[in-house]
C-alpha cells in the first residue's frame, strides 16, 4: 500500500497559513510555531525536547558507525512510500551496512516556499512512523525555508549514528575468491516505482517501492556469520554498481548467474518497455552480502527467516579470474560483462 497525504488520520495542526512561508524560516514566531506544531509532536523524545542547539548523548562505547545522506526525490510521494520513509530508512540502512545497530538520527529540512503544510505534515508523519518502526530516535534537526525555485519542494538530510558490534569488520575490500554473493530479495522495485510514476512516461500501473529499514535483517545475518566480508544496500546505480565497487575494491572478479537474479515480473516488464536493465535500477530495501562459501546456507536461512529477506538468494560467487570485473553467465550459457552504469538510466526507444 502506498501513502498519500490524505491517508493520515492524525489531523493537520491548525495554523494561519496553508503553505510554508519564507517567514517560517526567519527564526521568529512562525519558525517557533512550525517547530512546535509540526516537528516536535512527530519526533517527541527527551533529547529533542530540550530544544538546545545540539543533542547530548550517552555514548555506549565501542566503535561508532556515522553516516549522512541527502534525500531528493520527485515525486515526494510515490507508490510504497515517500521522501520521509527514504530519509529515515536510507540513513538507517547506511549505518546498518557497517554492521552497526542504528541509534540516533538528525534531520535537516530545506523547504521551498509555498510547499503545502499538509504535504510537510504527511512527510513528517511518514518519518515518525519509519523511525518508530526502525527503533531510532531523531534527536536533533534543523529547518530552512528557501525562495520559490531555490529547491524542488523539499530536501531532507539525515545523519545517523550507530554502534558496531565487537568482531564485525565489513568492507568492500574484503572479498576473497570462492566467497558467495547473496542478495536479500527482488531488484529494481524502488527505482522503477519512481520512474513509472513520473509524468511523461505514460504508465498507468503502480510498482511499489521497497523502502525498508534493514538493520534487523543485518543483525540476524551477522548473528550466524560474524565473519561476513562485506555488506551494502544497492541504492543508486543498483546491484550492478555495488558489485562493481566490490570487485574493484577487492581486486577480484564476480560471476553471477542470470537465472538467480530475482526480479518482479512487473519490474522486469517495465524494464523491457523502457529499455532499462533492473540490475542498474535503485533499491531502497535490499542488501547484498558477501560471505565465506561455507556460510552460504546458514546466512541464507537466517535471511529467509526474516520478512525483508524472505526472497534471499545466492547470486553468484567471487572469482580470482576477471579481477575488477563483474560478469554474468546467462541462461543460454554465454557470458557478458555487467559494467558500471554511465550516468542516469534513461528510458530509450532504440
Amino acid at each position: 500500500m502506498s501513502i498519500t497525504p490524505e491517508d493520515f488520520s492524525c489531523p493537520l495542526p491548525i495554523t494561519d497559513h496553508d503553505t510554508v512561508q519564507l517567514a517560517h524560516g526567519s527564526g521568529g514566531r512562525l519558525t517557533a510555531e512550525l517547530v512546535e506544531k509540526f516537528f516536535l509532536p512527530r519526533f517527541a523524545n527527551p533529547t529533542l525536547a530540550r530544544l538546545e542547539d545540539q543533542a547530548v548523548l550517552e555514548c555506549p562505547g565501542g566503535r561508532l558507525a556515522f553516516t549522512t545522506d541527502t534525500f531528493v526525490v520527485d515525486p515526494l510521494f510515490f507508490p510504497g512510500g515517500s521522501i520521509g520513509d527514504l530519509a529515515v530508512n536510507g540513513t538507517v540502512n547506511d549505518v546498518a551496512m557497517g554492521g552497526a545497530k542504528p541509534l540516533w538520527l538528525s534531520a535537516a529540512f530545506v523547504i521551498e516556499e509555498g510547499l503545502p503544510l499538509a504535504t510537510l505534515h504527511a512527510v513528517l508523519l511518514a518519518m515518525e512512523q519509519a523511525a518508530k518502526d526502525a527503533g531510532v530516535t531523531i534527536v536533533t534537526g534543523d529547518t530552512k525555508v528557501v525562495g520559490k525555485g531555490a529547491c524542488d519542494k523539499l530536501f531532507i538530510t539525515t545523519t545517523g549514528l550507530g554502534v558496531v558490534p565487537e568482531g564485525v569488520n565489513l568492507s568492500a575490500a574484503n572479498l576473497r575468491p570462492g566467497d558467495a554473493v547473496l542478495l536479500s530479495g527482488t531488484i529494481g522495485d524502488h527505482g522503477m516505482a519512481i520512474l513509472t510514476s513520473r509524468e511523461g512516461l505514460s504508465f498507468a500501473s503502480r510498482i511499489e517501492s521497497d523502502t525498508a529499514a534493514l538493520h534487523e535483517l543485518v543483525a540476524a545475518m551477522l548473528a550466524v556469520c560474524p565473519e561476513m566480508r562485506a555488506l551494502r544496500d544497492p541504492t543508486r546505480g543498483g546491484v550492478a554498481t555495488t558489485l562493481n565497487e566490490f570487485a574493484k575494491s577487492s581486486g577480484v572478479g564476480i560471476m553471477l548467474r542470470e537465472e538467480a537474479i530475482p526480479v518482479r515480473p512487473a519490474v522486469r516488464a517495465a524494464g523491457e518497455v523502457l529499455g532499462i536493465d533492473p540490475l542498474y535500477v535503485a533499491n531502497e530495501g535490499k542488501l547484498i552480502a558477501v560471505v565465506p562459501a561455507e556460510k552460504t546456507e546458514a546466512v541464507l536461512a537466517a535471511m529467509r527467516a526474516h520478512p525483508l529477506g524472505a526472497h534471499g538468494v545466492c547470486l553468484g560467487e567471487v572469482t580470482a579470474a576477471n579481477a575488477g570485473l563483474v560478469a554474468m553467465r546467462t541462461a543460454l550459457g554465454t557470458h557478458r560483462i555487467i559494467d558500471m552504469p554511465v550516468g542516469e538510466q534513461l528510458p530509450r526507444i532504440c
Partner: peptide, 11 residues
C-alpha cells in the same frame, strides 16, 4: 562492444 565484449579475452 565496450559493455559486453571485454569478457572475451578473459573467459
Amino acid at each position: 562492444y565496450h559493455k559486453y565484449q571485454r569478457l572475451r579475452a578473459t573467459v
